[in-house]
């Protein structure tokens, strides 16, 4: 028998915010829902949001869930967490937040919290008119064909939950739970993520050293500069964007101007400017040259 927390059982036996939301046809109120899962997979969640467009915030949230005890509790927890938040705040909620709200979930049930996070994202993207299908397809790479799990989804689960074993990945996003032919692929993604963490750590140390004047300022040839920018984009930036459903490619480098092309979900994402400034520029300034400026084309 599963060792569920009291909070899980409480929200299962007496779920809060169960049901759907009808459109009240009032000014400054919009209703939208997002869906994930399927009856074939054994769990599915339809999350309904009532949004106030003027403040971009969530007025109310309800759920309809087909699934086990922890799937129902996770859905209910999610609705409690997001009520009153702005959509941007809600997008920062991770499956870990849902699990924490519940006082923890059994490892094998973590995928229930992931389902909550995904439904939330689906609902918000739908509200904002972002093509969810396109977002989900990522670059077309399905790692686990049994459960239809993309590389993006696995990378995100690994990064957000600090996963280090294939078994954990299976528990969180189901990938690898079927025929098992993708287990080696999942292992690669874990190693990749661990290396990426290592690179970031090394880069941070390098930055500290530079700040302290330990290393002399570097002068780079244009070719060196471009190669370094490409490397940083590939190793540091793209995995993060891919995990969020987008991607970036280097278009050109003109002096200190780095021209990049944003693809996928990021391209039409309202927070793309922020993504640009803080994610890409900061990385390149840190790791290549402090004078670089990033521009989207």
């Amino acid at each position: 028998m599963w060792d569920y927390s009291e909070k899980v059982l409480e929200l299962f036996y007496n779920p809060l915010n169960q049901g759907s939301i009808d459109d009240p046809n009032q000014p400054d109120v919009a209703v939208v829902f997002g869906e994930v899962g399927s009856i074939a997979c054994g769990d599915a969640l339809r999350l309904h949001l009532k949004v106030q467009p003027s403040t971009d915030s969530i007025l109310d949230a309800r759920f309809q869930t087909f699934g086990c005890t922890s799937a129902i509790a996770s859905s209910s927890a999610l609705t409690e967490i997001i009520k009153g938040r702005t959509l941007d705040q809600a997008l920062h909620i991770t499956n870990r937040d849902i699990a924490d709200f519940l006082g923890g979930l059994p490892e094998a049930k973590m995928h229930c919290s992931v389902m909550g996070q995904e439904a939330l994202e689906a609902a918000i993207y739908k509200y904002r008119g972002i093509e969810v299908e396109h977002h989900e397809e990522d670059d077309g790479t399905l790692v686990c064909t049994c459960y239809g799990i993309s590389e993006k989804k696995i990378r995100r689960a690994i990064a957000e939950n600090d996963l280090s074993t294939v078994e954990q990945v299976t528990n969180y996003v189901k990938a690898g739970g079927g025929c098992g032919s993708c287990l080696a692929g999942i292992e690669d993604l874990i190693l990749d993520a661990q290396q990426s963490v290592e690179t970031v750590r090394a880069a941070a140390e390098l930055a500290v050293e530079r700040e302290q004047g330990i290393q002399p300022p570097i002068s780079l040839t244009n070719l060196q500069k471009i190669t370094m920018i490409q490397t940083v984009l590939d190793k540091e930036v793209r995995p993060v964007l891919v995990a969020d459903g987008g991607d970036v490619s280097l278009h050109d480098v003109e002096g200190d101007r780095v021209l990049v092309k944003l693809q996928g979900a990021c391209g039409s994402c309202p927070s793309s400017t922020e993504t640009l400034k803080y994610a890409i520029e900061a990385k390149l300034q840190d790791l290549v040259l402090p004078s670089l400026v990033v521009e989207a084309i």
């Binding site: 779920p15 129902i72 079927g178």
Partner: peptide, 23 residues
Amino acid sequence: RAMSPFSNDQAGWLQERDLAIVT
């Protein structure tokens, strides 16, 4: 069932993964 988004055999939404499961 009141909590479930499914209610009849025609509830086709999100069943498109059926094929992926079978393979």
